[in-house]
Amino acid sequence: MQQLIRRYQSLLTGIDLNFKRSLSKKINWDARAIGIKGARGTGKSTLMLQHLKTADYGEKALYFSLDDLYFKTTTLLETGESFYQAGGRKLFLDEVHKYPDWHREVKNLYDFYPDLQLTFSGSSILELQKSTVDLSRRVLFYELTALSFREFLQLKYDWAFPAYTLEEIQINHVEISRSIKQKLASPLHYFQEFLSYGSYPFFKEGLTDYSYRLQQIINIIIDYDLPEAKDISVSTQNKLKKLLYIISESVPFTPNITKLATQIETTRPILLEMLHVLEEARLIRNLRSSTKGISLMNKPEKILLSNANLIKSLSEKGWNSGNIRETFALDQLQNAGLNITHPSRGDFLVNEEILLEIGGKNKTPAQVAHHENHLVFSDELEIGWGKQIPLYLLGFLY
């Protein structure tokens, strides 16, 4: 186990504390068992290591990744028991989905050692979803989403802004926009940067290969993560990639499921299952009407990629501005924990209360004026008025 301890200490030395994700403050780090879900590249390992460095648990804590070659000859249960017997009380496990039957051994550690605190994370959200059946009574689950525009500004430029609720933005958006412009001469310039490469923290490692790295992540999710959690053939993997490409090239995509199934050479039921799998992998967002429910067999009213960076990475023929705007809005709204459904008129219905229309700077409220509690979020707008609000402010929800 000494080699695991040495690697952990080396990692801890190199961890930067200048920027922390907002989720870090929401996690109950004193809970007996914590599960951190999140798509690849969102920064789960850094989140755990930053907490360990800040808390300074000393020899009572240990972090390691379960894809370490050490676990080819030693089990997680054996390692956890040895750590506990040596006085350890806080175990942080990364990449748990890489370890066969990990949830059984995590459950055993939890049950056998009542004063051992367990924190684990994994990039295969589908694999972690399966574990919730066994672990839901024991584990407090959190999800680390892609970055918000607010977090991007802090990570890249060290500009700290508070987060606002949608209600605060609705009431005070003029004052909030003016306070932002006091630091940012041109918020729209930085907003365009975020739409191109700001969703994943690894932009800090270089921008020239950002799009290529994002495509690599997509391939890893479809070629490796999904088959570990689902019985997926190579031909289905290729169809999933084709489906992502079609969505990236579309205007805000209202699907004809039968036509789309024919386009990717599959059946309607299998296509609906594909859409579900891609959403669980955090590659797309399926927007449904509240009146139809979220049954797997109910087709989504709109299909959008998970964030704007994915569009700009996958699309070859240019980026539809309407698709970019709506993708950004849905990304930030859902990542902030808001319930979003598809209304009969307008673009998004928030918590069954606030009706949103998303558009350019000349967008009018005509589509949503029938609903008393409506808002229009407009791109290319730095400061709004009345119910006309700059679109970029949705990036300050978390």
Rank of each mutant, 00 (worst) to 15 (best):
F191Y: 15
L195G: 08
L195Y: 06
S196P: 01
S196V: 06
S196I: 00
S196R: 12
Y197D: 09
Y197G: 10
Y197S: 11
Y197N: 07
G198A: 04
G198T: 09
G198R: 05
Y200Q: 02
Y200V: 03
F202H: 12
F203S: 01
F203C: 00
K204E: 15
E205R: 08
G206P: 04
G206R: 07
G206K: 13
L207W: 04
L207A: 10
T208I: 08
T208N: 08
T208P: 00
Y212W: 08
Y212D: 07
R213E: 12
R213W: 07
Q215M: 15
Q216H: 09
I217R: 04
I218L: 11
I218W: 11
I218Y: 05
N219F: 10
I221N: 01
I221H: 03
D223S: 10
D223Q: 12
D223W: 00
Y224F: 09
D225W: 07
L226N: 00
P227W: 11
E228A: 13
E228C: 01
K230M: 12
D231H: 09
D231E: 12
I232G: 02
V234A: 08
V234L: 14
S235I: 06
S235D: 14
T236Y: 08
Q237R: 08
N238A: 11
N238H: 13
K239L: 01
K239R: 14
L240Q: 05
K241G: 02
K241I: 01
K241A: 10
K241E: 09
K242V: 11
L243F: 06
L244A: 05
L244N: 03
L244I: 03
I246R: 01
S248E: 04
S250V: 00
V251E: 14
V251T: 12
F253R: 03
N256C: 04
I257R: 01
K259S: 15
K259Q: 15
K259F: 01
L260R: 06
L260G: 02
A261I: 00
T262E: 15
T262R: 15
T262F: 05
Q263F: 04
Q263L: 14
I264V: 15
I264W: 11
E265H: 10
E265S: 13
T267C: 06
T267P: 07
T267Q: 10
R268W: 00
P269Y: 09
I270M: 15
I270A: 15
L271T: 10
L271P: 06
L271H: 09
L272Q: 05
L275H: 08
H276R: 14
H276W: 13
E280K: 13
E280F: 01
E280D: 14
A281Q: 07
L283K: 05
I284W: 06
R285F: 11
R285V: 09
N286S: 12
L287E: 05
L287S: 00
L287D: 02
R288M: 07
R288P: 02
R288L: 06
S289M: 07
S289I: 06
T291K: 15
T291G: 03
